[in-house]
């Protein structure tokens, strides 16, 4: 009886295991089709390094590309550069509005 059960169950394992393997393969092929994402950090600054007038802002931007990771990175850096320049303007306006009460 035991032998009969073994003969029946063994082929069934193959039947269940195979579809699982196929699903894994599908996921992997789907992953490689996703557009690559890249992030880039840029900073803008004014003032003197090490002194209390030094003003620096860093901005990180991310981008995707249908072409390549390098293209996504270049796009992210263009975005980060523009954002950093704008961020420094905002920083200067923010520090310019500071009033110290006594």
């Amino acid at each position: 009886m035991k032998k009969l059960l073994f003969i029946l169950i063994l082929p069934m394992q193959f039947c269940f295991a195979n579809p699982i393997k196929k699903t894994e393969n599908n996921l992997q092929s789907q992953k490689s089709e996703v557009d690559p994402l890249a992030c880039c950090t840029r900073r803008a600054s004014s003032g003197t390094y090490g002194q209390p007038d030094y003003n620096q802002v860093s901005v990180t931007r991310c981008a995707t590309s249908t072409q390549s990771y390098q293209d996504a990175y270049a796009r992210a850096c263009v975005l980060a550069e523009a954002s950093a320049t704008k961020a420094l303007e905002i920083s200067e306006a923010t520090s310019g509005s500071v009033l110290i009460g006594r």
Binding site: P52, Y54, T60, K86, I90, S91
Partner: peptide, 21 residues
């Protein structure tokens, strides 16, 4: 704190230093 909380767009975060010399 003002600069760290400033979010002009959802995916942008400004980072300013908390130290110098």
């Amino acid at each position: 704190e003002k600069m760290s909380n400033y979010k002009p767009e959802e995916d942008i975060e400004f980072v300013v230093p908390n130290r110098s010399i």
